[in-house]
Design a protein around this nucleic acid. Structure first.
Ligand SMILES: [Mn+2]
Ligand SMILES: [Mn+2]
Ligand SMILES: [Zn+2]
Ligand SMILES: [Zn+2]
Lengths: 155, 155
DNA sequence: GTCCTATTGAGAACTATTCTCATTAATAAA
DNA sequence: TTTATTAATGAGAATAGTTCTCAATAGGAC
């Protein structure tokens, strides 16, 4: 196992310890799995990949840690409507915040992140307005577009 | 039971028969339940309310019909992230299309529908742009804002 | 190295949803 | 109105994603 000094340089070690969360081997593996892909993985897929790094890891540990990582904001979780919850890294990626195009037929997900400035402005203004109008503290948002991907439309 | 002539005047009878769906008693009850509220109900809640109208209705029938009604576009379904899928009528309401403010703590949902024209324009333009860029036919969208409601913030 | 306790693995338990199948009833046709 | 067709139903079993339990382990502060 990596020694302590190495661990302290891990990209989210600080954030974890700030929350009194230890950088355990399963946790490290899960973060490695999510870091290594740009796909949206469900718990089972993360379990399989993480098992290659930590062969004895348990599925319950996957769920426990995903919940924890979502809570401290390192991971973004969302439901696709076909009962498979998927996860992706929230930070440390090409461009962290993004929206989704979701195909209703094949359930594939396209990340959309090339925001124009006016798009960010628009959403920020909308959030300000909504916060006031409904006395609601907005922390984040989820914008998904549903429809048919090119492949499914031509099939 | 209502006779045939009455049923044919039911607000979505045409839409149903167009899809070869019969206006059955359980179906009628579910639509009545959804029509009578502005809340977002889960399957269990719909089951309980519908049971008061049709005492022998089965839970499986609730799920079957909700799926059907979602497919033909009469009902809007969405997942709140706490594993309770909720449903609401898509048509025949104050203002059909709307977005949501969802409290992360108490899971309450606020409907937000007072769109300004520029908001609709903005989303329409965005959809046009995305459709082209990703060769994706957009059919609808889901915009949710997550955060803390007034009650939970002051508690 | 010692100690405290957060975290783990295994599997049982839970729960929302879907499936199966014999029976019933909505509707079109006669 | 009667009949025929087959979509739809209720009951309960089955499934699957997720959470829980608990004794054992290991991260990391000291
Ligand atoms: Mn994504
Ligand atoms: Mn709503
Ligand atoms: Zn597709
Ligand atoms: Zn709240």
């Amino acid at each position: 196992m990596r020694n302590l000094r190495d661990k302290k340089t891990f990209w989210c070690y600080e954030k974890l310890s700030k929350c009194c969360c230890r950088l355990t081997k399963p946790r490290h593996a899960i973060l490695d799995v999510l870091s290594a892909t740009e796909k949206h993985l469900n718990a089972e897929q993360i379990y399989k990949s993480a098992s290659r790094i930590e062969p004895n890891i348990g599925l319950a540990t996957i769920y426990r840690n995903l919940e924890l990582l979502v809570n401290i904001g390192l991971v973004w979780k969302f439901e696709t409507g076909n009962s498979k919850t998927v996860y992706e890294l929230a930070e440390c990626r090409h461009e962290s915040h993004h929206h989704h195009l979701i195909c209703k037929k094949c359930n594939s997900i396209i990340d959309y992140s090339g925001f124009r400035d006016n798009e960010k402005d628009f959403i920020r203004r909308r959030e300000e307005m909504l916060s006031k109008k409904y006395d609601f503290k907005i922390q984040n948002h989820c914008i998904d577009f549903y429809g048919l991907c090119a492949k499914c439309r031509n099939a």
